[in-house]
């Protein structure tokens, strides 16, 4: 599938990850255009339903960019996000959709340049999985 351009939804926290993205921009590292970024107050506000609805709407991947452990401004938001990701991944496994389409990455302001590694890893992973079967049936 040479023309496959994954549609990725990325929820990112307004604190560390936001600063990291800005500093990446400053170094001319930009987010690939097929990433739809959603800035949120804290990854603790990412609800299971948000992740599910994104998948249901045909996203090929749904990811969360969180503050590193111990850096969450609300103390445990990133831990809650991790648990919810685990829950959704289990649910996906139960219904036969690749759980790898959902994930979490940790990222802070000093890591600007590594944003590229993260987005590349996500793209590789999703390219390997191919398009979401939900997106296809919607197009059909």
């Amino acid at each position: 599938m040479p023309d496959f351009e994954p549609k990725i939804i990325l929820f990112y926290c307004q604190f560390c990850p936001d600063k990291g993205i800005n500093s990446a921009c400053a170094s001319n590292i930009s987010m690939p255009s097929n990433f739809r970024k959603i800035r949120i107050p804290c990854t603790g506000t990412v609800d299971i339903l948000h992740l599910m609805h994104a998948l249901e709407a045909g996203a090929d991947g749904v990811f969360v960019l969180a503050c590193k452990e111990g850096d969450c401004h609300n103390e445990t938001g990133n831990i809650k996000a991790q648990k919810r990701i685990t829950y959704v991944r289990k649910l996906m496994e139960d219904i036969g959709l690749e759980p790898e389409r959902v994930g979490i990455y940790y990222f802070n302001s000093s890591q600007g340049p590594s944003l590229k590694n993260i987005t590349q890893e996500i793209l590789e992973k999703i390219s390997e999985l191919g398009p979401s079967p939900l997106g296809l049936s919607e197009a059909a």
């Binding site: 599910m52 609805h53 249901e56 649910l91 079967p133 939900l134």
Partner: peptide, 21 residues
């Protein structure tokens, strides 16, 4: 309400995936 939403979404995803929404 929340669990209803999650279950509905999961069922819809599973069925959509099968091409039988």
């Amino acid at each position: 309400t929340k669990e209803v939403g999650i279950l509905a979404s999961a069922l819809k995803i599973a069925r959509k995936k099968e091409g039988n929404p």
